[in-house]
Design a protein around this nucleic acid. Structure first.
Lengths: 137, 137
DNA sequence: GGCAAATTGTAGCAATGGCTACGGATGCTG
DNA sequence: CAGCATCCGTAGCCATTGCTACAATTTGCC
């Protein structure tokens, strides 16, 4: 009855790596959304989107470019790589399922929007499946 | 129809302040749990609990002591302040509701345990109320 | 009491993500 | 096409949370 085989690093996601991945997901999702809405995505668009300074965006964009998630050149718009687009697609799906699910259990739309942003990164595929199943029921 | 009065810093919780608060909640909850289980809580207990080095724990404990959430002295056990105990109590309640809720919608216990750790910090009181209401239905 | 093991603290490094201040590019507009 | 506004990059600061390596304290055992 070994109940603790897995290290708690699996349970507790307050790790640099996990956070970096959350950031990556939020950014590619935002880039996709902004391009979809306005045709192109600039550093300042992301800065406004996340309500942070352009400097913070700039550094993160550079990191994500190094991770082959997005592409840009100095003073140029930002676009997604194939890999980035794929991540954005999954992130969006997850986001929408969580959002719809929260609304389905009676959370008001505005609160659901806020909470789903935080929750989406912590929902495993199994939990996501349970939410999806709940929605189609 | 101003749909974006609130800054996105409210929606996107990837902020130092928010993370620091998550850490605080996880730590006070862990301290309460460990004391409850074994009578006292030491730095190494927390290190094992979170699967991090004792150094990381030591520094965070020092910070949380400064925030009046817990009390300790060098080479001595850790206990909660009144404020820390209150935070631990609410964190535990939230944790349990989220956990029970996930199980209720069909997530297996192990996955629910993992996901609830991540989700609990992002659930507003409104969403928590919706979960509670779902459970008692 | 004293030694050894276990525990905890300190020093110092890295990565991530906040910021302000400043300077260089780009692009619009007269 | 020149100048100005906007956008973006760089330099350099801080906080948080990881780490290893080493020092200090406590504790248990002989």
């Amino acid at each position: 009855m070994q109940e603790d085989k897995k290290p708690n690093s699996v349970r507790f996601s307050r790790t640099r790596k996990h956070h970096a991945n959350e950031t990556a997901e939020d950014y590619v999702e935002a880039v996709a959304e902004i391009i979809d809405a306005s045709g192109e995505c600039r550093v300042l668009d992301l800065a406004k989107y996340f309500d942070v300074s352009h400097v913070t965006v700039s550094r993160i964009v550079k990191r994500l470019q190094g991770e082959d998630l997005l592409v840009t050149r100095p003073y140029r718009p930002i676009s997604l790589t194939k890999q980035g687009a794929k991540m954005a697609k999954y992130a969006k799906q997850r986001h929408e399922i969580v959002l719809d699910f929260l609304v389905a259990i009676g959370v008001d739309a505005q609160t659901a929007e806020i909470d789903s942003e935080g929750i989406e990164h912590h929902v495993s595929s199994k939990t996501l499946a349970a939410m999806k199943s709940f929605l189609t029921k």
